[in-house]
């Protein structure tokens, strides 16, 4: 009998508190702008990954007689580039390198910058001073200048672009991570955890990371759009991806010679960069308001 009486008490599924991330997810899903942007970004990523399997022409195969065909040419829906290569294929294949070089530096910088910032913020003292003063120095360079300086010195190449852009985005992420961590570090529960005798690593792992990662993450997502534009910009300058690889920035550069012959065709790769960066920005804004994190 006693069991039967307690039964309604255990059946509290409906009132179970929603987890934080589930709440964020639900709010993002309810926001139409975020969902459209997410769909566009996913479509671009998927089409880039599966480019070889969706029946596109060879993006490297040119034709001397079919150069700079206009949009809507038979067999070439978006025309052909200055070497007669199919534009649609190159734009879709171009997403592979552009998105990879445009997004990965932020991912790398997120891990490295978070680690540095959390250590600086948690340990404080001399460690903090050394890390943060070095970060300050990097803030003396506008991001475009720093990316071009490092890439210019290292030379063109995919790895060099990844390295230079990662270096560009570590300092801002470190600064945010340090600020958030310092704030959390001052809270009572950290003192309580330390009083139990837990060492620094344990406290950081159990009590700090969970509380600082989401604001750092949101901040990092707001950098993806800038990173995309910069990555394509490096290739546009000729210090990123090398020809003949399809990459939006590089395509924009090589097609510049065609702006008097087939102007709108030559602007196409930029449309891809623009749409992607716009979607990344809107998505980051949506995520920010869903997580209710203020900057």
């Amino acid at each position: 009998m006693a069991l039967a009486e307690t039964e309604p008490m255990t059946d509290t599924k409906a009132a179970k508190p929603q987890s934080y991330w589930a709440g964020v997810g639900a709010r993002v899903v309810r926001d139409p702008v975020s969902m459209i942007c997410l769909a566009v970004v996913l479509l671009l990523i998927l089409s880039a990954i599966f480019a070889p399997y969706i029946g596109l022409p060879d993006p490297y195969k040119g034709s001397m007689i079919a150069r700079l065909k206009p949009l809507g040419t038979e067999g070439h829906l978006l025309g052909t580039d200055e070497q007669g290569r199919d534009m649609l294929a190159r734009l879709i294949y171009g997403g592979r390198l552009t998105l990879f070089i445009g997004l990965m530096p932020v991912v790398f910088a997120f891990f490295i910058g978070s680690a540095l910032g959390i250590v600086a913020g948690y340990v404080g003292g001399m460690t903090n001073t050394i890390i943060m003063r070095i970060v300050d120095v990097f803030f003396a360079f506008p991001s475009v200048l720093l990316a071009i300086a490092i890439s210019g010195a290292l030379g063109a190449g995919i790895v060099n672009s990844l390295v230079s852009l990662t270096i560009v985005f570590i300092p801002p992420i470190t600064r945010v991570a340090e600020a958030v961590t310092s704030g959390v570090r001052a809270l009572d529960y950290i003192d309580a955890a330390r009083a139990t005798g837990a060492n620094a690593l344990t406290v950081i792992r159990v009590h700090v990371i969970g509380n600082v990662l989401s604001p750092i993450f949101v901040y990092a997502t707001s950098l993806t759009s800038v990173c995309m534009i910069l990555a394509a910009g490096l290739s546009f300058l000729g210090i990123g991806v090398r020809p003949p690889e399809p990459e939006w920035g590089l395509m924009l550069n090589t097609l510049r010679s065609a702006i008097y012959i087939n102007p709108w065709l030559s602007a196409l790769p930029g449309v891809m960069i623009f749409v992607t960066s716009l979607c990344l920005n809107l998505l980051s804004d949506g995520l920010r308001s869903a997580m209710n994190v203020r900057d």
Binding site: S225, L252, I259, S266, A267, P269, G270, L278, L280, N281
Partner: peptide
């Protein structure tokens, strides 16, 4: 938001066109 998302080197080319 459009202003901060636009790759300005591309915008330059579009304005030239």
């Amino acid at each position: 938001i459009t202003g901060v998302s636009v790759p300005n080197y591309w915008l330059g080319i579009v304005l030239v066109i």
